[in-house]
């Protein structure tokens, strides 16, 4: 008989399980198939209002630097080809994504990107900006690479 044993502590590894991007993609696909586009929208708003409550509070308190810091931290962990820029206008933040690490990983696994997957960015940003002095814009979406331009500006 052969015996194998592996003993790991949480501190032995960095928390980065990119296969979760595919699981999230599957959830969007499932929502689309079973609850329609309105189901996708409703869930993403529900998620944003619940999970990003502290980020929204930070946005209201400190302004766009809250979103800037949030995304700098995320892309530092996730990688991708991304530029996060603040212009001279303190009320503007532009995130230019040339290669999205989430879409890149989903494609690498050979999975089909769910329809309206980009709403997990655009709609999340719109919901985050509800009842704040800012609005979110989203353009240049490329489902092959996940490229997009995400802009936050003063209303």
């Amino acid at each position: 008989m052969l015996h194998l044993r592996m003993d790991r502590k949480a501190s032995d590894n960095v928390y980065l399980h990119k296969d979760f991007h595919n699981a999230f993609n599957l959830a969007i696909q499932y929502l689309t198939d079973n609850y329609g586009e309105e189901g996708v929208r409703d869930y993403l708003r529900y998620f944003t209002r619940n999970y990003y409550g502290p980020l929204k509070a930070d946005l209201l308190e400190r302004g766009l630097v809250a979103i800037e810091e949030h995304y700098r931290k995320i892309y530092e962990i996730e990688g991708g080809d991304v530029t996060i820029e603040r212009s001279d206008d303190p009320e503007e933040l532009v995130i230019t994504v040339r290669v999205c690490p989430a879409v890149e990983h989903i494609r690498k696994l050979g999975s089909k990107l769910a329809p309206n997957y980009e709403w997990s960015t655009s709609l999340v940003h719109e919901t985050l900006c509800e009842d704040t002095p800012w609005r979110a814009e989203f353009s240049g979406w490329d489902p092959q690479t996940g490229a997009s331009i995400q802009r936050f500006v003063r209303r």
Binding site: L16, K18, D19, H21, A27, Y46, F47, E78, V97, C100
Partner: peptide
């Protein structure tokens, strides 16, 4: 982008939704 490091809360909230 919702990070893979944020997947677990998104998953849990999906079940709740």
């Amino acid at each position: 982008m919702i990070s893979c490091t944020e997947f677990i809360p998104s998953y849990s909230l999906f079940f709740s939704w």
